[in-house]
């Protein structure tokens, strides 16, 4: 079935290294996105019309533009328009952080507005200060909604980073293609085996993370 190619020489290690490169890029973008996303999400609920208009436009752009298009714009477009030469890694970091930040901000905004007004009113009736309301009432409720959703976002970002091969980064899919090409004569069925293994590798990375998110969601639902 062509799976034997994987165990030839250093092929498996090369595949894993490729996966590592994709993971590195997704993890850095996840970290940036979470920090910026929380800040922007909070800004969005402050009801400042000007800020809101800008952020809404930003969210809408990210919502309807495929990540591939954003990658192309940053990687090819910026170079052509400004002459700045971005490496493929930098371009993908910019795009995935840009995208992830918007997604995270939307999650934060969503969980903030999902808290019914009665929670604020009750806290006020109990004589809690604004700060106390947030620390003791609102934030504990938000965190329970937010953590499973953000873990879910992490798996989505990991899946989306597979696109980086399209701008020439040698990650797991590209390594897979190289292995298939190199063994075209000796094992013509390699395409099946190699892609099946990559399929499984992604599942092994994302499966447990989404299982964790599901478990937390179940445990915390009231």
């Amino acid at each position: 079935m062509g799976i034997e190619v994987i165990f030839k020489g250093k092929n498996l290690i090369r595949l894993l290294e490729g996966l590592g490169i994709a993971m590195k890029i997704s993890m850095i973008s996840v970290a940036i996105s979470i920090v910026l996303g929380i800040i922007l999400g909070m800004l969005m609920t402050m009801k400042k019309p000007a800020v809101n208009a800008v952020l809404r436009a930003y969210l809408e752009i990210v919502r309807i533009m495929p990540q591939m298009v954003l990658l192309f714009i940053v990687f090819f477009g910026i170079t052509k328009m400004t002459g700045i030469n971005l490496s493929a890694e930098t371009a993908s970091l910019i795009v995935f952080s840009f995208w992830g930040t918007a997604e995270m901000a939307d999650l934060v905004r969503g969980s903030l507005i999902s808290i019914p007004a009665i929670q604020y009113e009750s806290s006020m009736a109990l004589g809690l200060s604004g700060f106390q309301t947030y620390v003791y009432v609102i934030i504990p409720q938000i965190i329970r909604r937010l953590i499973p959703l953000s873990i879910n976002l992490i798996t989505r970002m990991i899946k989306t980073t597979s696109l980086i091969m399209m701008i020439g980064i040698v990650e797991v899919l590209k390594v897979g293609q190289q292995i298939i090409e190199a063994n075209r004569k000796t094992s013509p069925k390699a395409a099946f085996g190699v892609f099946a293994v990559i399929f499984l590798l992604y599942y092994l990375v994302c499966g447990p993370i989404s299982a964790l998110s599901k478990m937390l969601e179940k445990r915390w639902e009231n």
Partner: peptide, 23 residues
């Protein structure tokens, strides 16, 4: 559901388009 939710479309496409013809 588990398998397809946890893998990127790009890999699924490659598997179906390049992988399956090999067998």
């Amino acid at each position: 559901i588990e398998l397809f939710r946890n893998t990127p479309l790009l890999i699924q496409l490659f598997f179906i388009y390049f992988g399956l013809p090999a067998i």
